[in-house]
């Protein structure tokens, strides 16, 4: 029996900034995992990947990866993706830095 399809998101790095970005339902790219489209169908995932790859000139290393549904949108399944959406653990750099700044400005 084929294994049930585990939900996926599409992610990559931005060409200019190099930071982590996610493919959204309206075919744009977001810096926030919660904005990513959670794809639950295998055929749909391949199709969406092809669509995302149309941006291959401005986006680097596009791939599908497992994610799960959470109260605020998709959440990572694997710790690697958890680090990618957060930043390194030795400094508050990367995405967590932007978040810290955002909260500091409220």
């Amino acid at each position: 029996m084929p294994r049930p399809f585990s939900p996926k998101i599409i992610t990559a790095n931005d060409l200019l900034e190099g930071d982590v970005i996610y493919f959204t339902a309206d075919g744009a790219w977001s810096r926030d995992l919660a904005q990513a489209e959670l794809i639950t169908d295998e055929a749909e995932a391949q199709l969406r990947l092809l669509e995302a790859e149309r941006d291959a000139l401005s986006v680097v290393g596009i791939y599908l990866t497992d994610a799960k549904d959470g109260p605020n949108g998709p959440e990572p399944v694997h710790f690697r993706e958890d680090f990618r959406r957060t930043g390194p653990s030795n400094y508050a750099h990367g995405k967590q830095e932007a978040k810290l700044e955002a909260t500091a400005h409220v």
Binding site: G18, G61, G87, P88
Partner: peptide
């Protein structure tokens, strides 16, 4: 890569 530039997890 020939010029030492990698793309890592969060940045170049």
């Amino acid at each position: 890569l020939m010029n030492g530039l990698y793309l890592q997890l969060h940045a170049y």
